[in-house]
């Protein structure tokens, strides 16, 4: 509590009231930190471990929250799991070991990066397949139409270019 809040020119009563209000505020904050940003102040053994902590706490999901990762949630389970994550990192466990540890206990649900399994093949390979499919069919259709057009009458290249010049002038 800040004693700077008490001005020695005011009456004792006012000081007392300020003191009470500050204390009450403090208690209320302690109890109602629902949307406070969660701040753990862990001491990591080195910078690399700290960075791994930051990355992993974003890769892991808080099991009980409405779609938040461990880094952003202030719920009790998230606070506990962050502490456990810290302990595991300090013990020297590798990233994969930590992920396996969490998945063994909480299931795949707790991973924001879905593991590559039979069930997630469509998820991981789908985008590439869709993109190649699109581009492939576009090329295919264009080539087919291109072949058909070769049979049509066409201007000479020189004539074509001058015509293009006229048409494409913006």
């Amino acid at each position: 509590m800040s004693y700077a809040a008490i001005d020695f020119n005011t009456t004792k009563l006012q000081q007392l009231i300020r003191l009470l209000v500050s204390t009450l505020l403090l208690i209320t904050f302690w109890l109602s930190n629902a949307n406070a940003s969660p701040v753990d102040t862990f001491e990591f053994k080195d910078e690399a471990t700290k960075l791994r902590f930051q990355v992993l706490s974003k890769e892991l999901r808080c099991p009980k929250c409405q779609n938040q990762n461990l880094a952003d949630s202030n719920s009790k389970i998230a606070v506990d799991l962050r502490k456990n994550l810290y302990n595991l990192l300090q013990e020297g466990k590798s990233d994969q070991e930590i992920i396996d540890f969490m998945v063994y206990r909480y299931g795949d649900f707790v991973l924001y990066r879905p593991p590559l399994k039979k069930q997630t093949y469509v998820l991981w390979f789908g985008p590439l397949v869709i993109l190649l499919g699109f581009l492939g069919s576009v090329i295919f259709v264009l080539r087919k139409r291109g072949k058909a057009k070769e049979n049509e009458l066409s201007l000479s290249t020189g004539e074509q270019e001058s015509l293009d010049d006229i048409l494409n002038k913006k």
Binding site: P63, K64, K76, I77, D80, L81, N84, R105, Y106, G107
Partner: peptide
Amino acid sequence: QGALGLDIGVFG
């Protein structure tokens, strides 16, 4: 510390 809880996947 919640060690056993963590080991059996308790979240609340």
